[in-house]
């Protein structure tokens, strides 16, 4: 454990998941600390995205995933979201035909506090000034990086207890990726945001994460503090490329 952790926010044990009849996850155990960042590493098809989808009730799953005291497994996606889990999906899930601002309002759909919502929209614009410039623009016309920023802002509008990020760097230029991760770091520090990040770019993920887990074909093969995992010989060779 690194840093002053106050406790465990998400505790997953024995998580299994299926696509139709095909089992994709075989009993994963991992945790996300309150205010901490956990990253799941692994090759293509290892089951990283599947894990996030299982946590969100988007596919059939078994095992337990306790957020605070509440088990998430077996609940509908909408209900899991209402418990404070924000998912930034791969491909960003932008509502392309709507404006940037409407996308942000949708992020706050589960909230009732209209004034605070308006304030939070302004706060999102403060984190991502480019979005402020384009607030009346159709979200589909944004660049990939801007859409990723919008997706993260939209997730923040939920006031999430936990944010799930699926490949946030995917398909983006290195400069944009750097900007994005520096903002994620700020969100962690300033907003005490807890995150579970799935990333192909392991070096980047290990930089921001407190804890890391390595998944291979739906099974957990290694876990530990992100710093230690980053120095492991095998991980370096296989996933960091040096």
């Amino acid at each position: 454990m690194t840093g002053p952790m106050t406790g465990t926010l998400l505790e997953v044990s024995g998580l299994e998941a299926w696509y139709g009849r095909i089992q994709a996850l075989f009993g994963l155990d991992f945790t996300v600390a309150d205010g901490g960042v956990t990253t799941l590493l692994g090759a293509n098809g290892a089951g990283k995205t599947t894990t996030l989808r299982a946590l969100c009730g988007m596919i059939r799953s078994a095992g337990t995933a306790r957020l605070g005291g509440t088990d998430l497994t077996g609940r509908a996606t909408e209900d899991i979201v209402r418990l404070g889990v924000a998912h930034v999906p791969q491909g960003r899930g932008t509502f392309t035909a709507m404006t940037v601002e409407e996308n942000l309002q949708l992020g706050a759909m589960t909230r009732r506090d209209m004034r605070a919502i308006a304030e939070d929209i302004e706060r999102a614009y403060a984190y991502f000034p480019r979005l402020a410039e384009r607030r009346r623009q159709q979200a589909g016309t944004l660049s990939g990086g801007e859409q990723q920023m919008l997706a993260i802002s939209r997730a923040m509008m939920l006031k999430p207890r936990l944010m799930l990020l699926d490949e946030p760097s995917f398909g983006l230029a290195p400069l944009i990726v750097e900007e994005l991760f520096s903002i994620l770091s700020r969100l962690k520090a300033e907003e005490n945001l807890s995150m579970l990040i799935v990333e192909q770019n392991a070096a980047l993920a290990l930089e921001i994460a407190d804890e890391a887990y390595l998944i291979e074909t739906g099974r957990m093969v290694m876990s530990g503090p992100a710093r230690d995992i980053g120095q492991d010989e095998n991980v370096r060779r296989a996933y960091l490329g040096y």
Binding site: C56, M58, A76, T77, E78, V81, R82, A86, H87, P89, G93, T94, F95, T96, A97, M98, E102, Q105, L106, G107, M109, T110, R154, L158
Partner: peptide, 24 residues
């Protein structure tokens, strides 16, 4: 209206709509 916005979201992109808590 918020409910109108939610309906548009549910129609245009049901998966994303669920992910923001809309009861599609």
């Amino acid at each position: 209206t918020r409910i109108g916005l939610a309906m548009r979201a549910a129609a245009s992109n049901p998966d994303s709509a669920r992910l923001v808590g809309v009861r599609v």
